[in-house]
Design a binder for these strands. Structure first.
Lengths: 347, 347
DNA sequence: CTGAAAGCGCTTACAG
DNA sequence: CTGAAAGCGCTTACAG
């Protein structure tokens, strides 16, 4: 029951180990008939190359790391799924590494993983993808990385992003198009760069429409359901609350939605609620939440593609490795026409 | 910038490579002063052993596989998080492998991973942990595995489980204690062994209380939110619907809850709804759903502990490696006293 | 197009 | 308690 090795195949096929190596790696310069003969023995013996031996001699690991700040989140789960599937297609494997850059020894932990596993590349997610210290560390370790949705001024690596600003603008325009004039906004966790982008998109549209904001119309959450609940209470507690609230993600939008129901404020009759992400919760809510679909799986898959591209290490900042993916506004039942009169909507 | 190797440390410390190896692996039989001296050099050079070289010569990989049927589910995410954290504590790494045993070439895929990565062990989750074909395959590959919540008659490996039957009985008793006599039940996906256990717990309690079921009181879902929605409509569409519905998981309970709201049936005033899992959705709903907390993270962490235990391979079926974890009934606002009269509750 | 040699960085026996 | 030798299963130069 000793596993079959390269040598076994070579012996049986009557060629050198090197030739077998060429065949299994799909290298050129092997006579077709030799290639076919070797391949037959490989199939017959059900030979699988030992990844460790391969890694040891080639210093490639066929392992990609997915570094996650919050591995329990739905966002992380979606990214991971996309990365996982693409890795499989490309014969890579994915190692998931939780990384808390606020912990005292975060650097030591990550160095352990990098050196021990000899990762071929890493996918960096928000908000850790914006840590200069982390990028410096990876650079000094010589580890290639691709960032997902990094801060706008980022030019240090390949990246995959979505135009969060434009998406938020579009959602705001959608609400304005429904007749809403007094629109509240809930910002996300300021540690995430998308929080600012989404807010900017919101103000872009408000300004363009000549609408002004009153104190209390913009509040800061942290992307959690709980913060949506709290802010919902703050915003809806008084009398002159907005006719629409746009939350920077679905979890917070859900918090607002539930608070509205609890307070007997009909959605979308008296209040429209919009979110961002197209998280499962946005569909599980009632009414279902109007949101922006973010192609999270594709983003992660794209990151894998870039890392696996042999030319990436040579020119990581090439435009070819900076990809912008499309979003989509998903219009559902939590938003509707403004039916409340416009009397006190303007400041 | 060549990485520091064992040899470098040995040279610098003036000892043989083998001695350094002993020190970094915490083996006995090294003089304390030698050990200290070597350790100093290790720290000084910030040496990290190359996992591939180690694996190649020792045939251990320090890699554990988490085999997941549905990597996108919240259940999978919770398990993974628990496994990830425990792996880190134990200096192992986790490789997540999606595995669809209904796909044509599932066996080939998984063999690739096992042989290429030389996994030290695997964690098997429902429902794939009940596939005889998979277990046979792993046995023939010599890969140690631990199963999470396998079918009750399972004696082929270590396992971690929860008493689903007793938990479902307790929840049913809770509803009966609230005065409910006409209770509906929604079964889970029959491919998952817990579905049957939960249903048995339900009937245990109903029988013990002398309550009978009418046609249509028990329906079969598939654990999805969508199936909860559909079954909710079926059950609540008529006039004499139950005063309480117990769904086999939270996603389906949420589907029922939302259907009730849509139909204007107050929860918990006119209908109590109970779930199972303590999924995030159960807390994000309004009213929050009464459910059973399942220690998913702990279950996965326990599986890691077992796989890492050196004595596991020798006696995988020892009682020590069959662990039963506690659950907890979480009483929230979706359940309340039965306020509807008992006129037509009995058949 | 094909192969013989050396080496990747560890650990496993085996000595002493 | 410590070390010299061999080997894990591949790939990388280098020849031819």
């Amino acid at each position: 029951m000793r596993p079959v090795t390269l040598k076994d195949v070579a012996l049986r096929a009557g060629v050198s180990p090197k030739t077998v190596s060429r065949v299994i790696n799909g290298e050129l310069h092997v006579r077709p008939e030799v290639r076919a003969a070797v391949q037959r023995i490989v199939d017959e013996l059900d030979y699988r190359p030992n990844a460790f031996a391969r890694s040891l001699s080639s210093s490639r690991s066929y392992l990609l790391g997915l570094f996650l700040d919050d591995p329990g989140s739905g966002y992380a789960a979606d990214l991971q799924l996309g990365a996982l599937m693409r890795c499989r297609e490309r014969s890579y494997h994915l190692v998931v590494e939780p990384l808390d850059i606020t912990a005292p020894n975060w650097a030591g932990q990550i160095i352990d993983s990098i050196r021990a596993l000899r990762l071929d590349g890493a996918i960096l997610t928000p908000p850790i993808c914006d840590s200069e210290a982390l990028l410096d560390l990876l650079d000094s370790e010589g580890l290639a990385y691709v960032r997902i949705s990094p801060r706008g001024d980022a030019t240090r690596s390949g990246l995959i992003e979505m135009d969060d600003r434009s998406a938020a603008r579009e959602m705001t325009e959608h609400l304005i198009g429904l007749g809403h004039r007094h629109i509240g906004f809930i910002k996300g966790d300021p540690a995430h760069s998308v929080s600012l982008k989404r807010f900017e998109g919101f103000t872009d549209a408000m300004t363009a429409a000549g609408l002004t904001l009153r104190p209390g119309d913009v509040r800061e959450g942290d992307f959690s359901f709980r913060s949506g609940l709290r802010i919902g209470e703050e915003m809806l507690g008084g009398t002159a609350f907005p006719s629409a609230i746009f939350a920077s993600n679905d979890d917070m939008a859900l918090g607002v939605l539930i608070t509205a129901m609890r307070l007997g404020i009909g959605v979308p009759d008296r209040l429209s609620v919009a979110g961002f992400d197209d998280a499962p919760t946005s569909r599980a809510a009632w009414p279902q939440i109007t949101t922006i679909r973010q192609p999270k799986g594709e983003m992660a898959a794209g990151a894998v593609d870039i890392l696996v591209d042999p030319s990436y290490r040579a020119s990581p900042t090439s435009a070819h490795f900076r990809r912008l993916l499309d979003y989509e506004l998903v219009d559902r039942l939590s938003t509707g026409p403004n039916t409340r009169d416009g009397s006190s909507q303007r400041s």
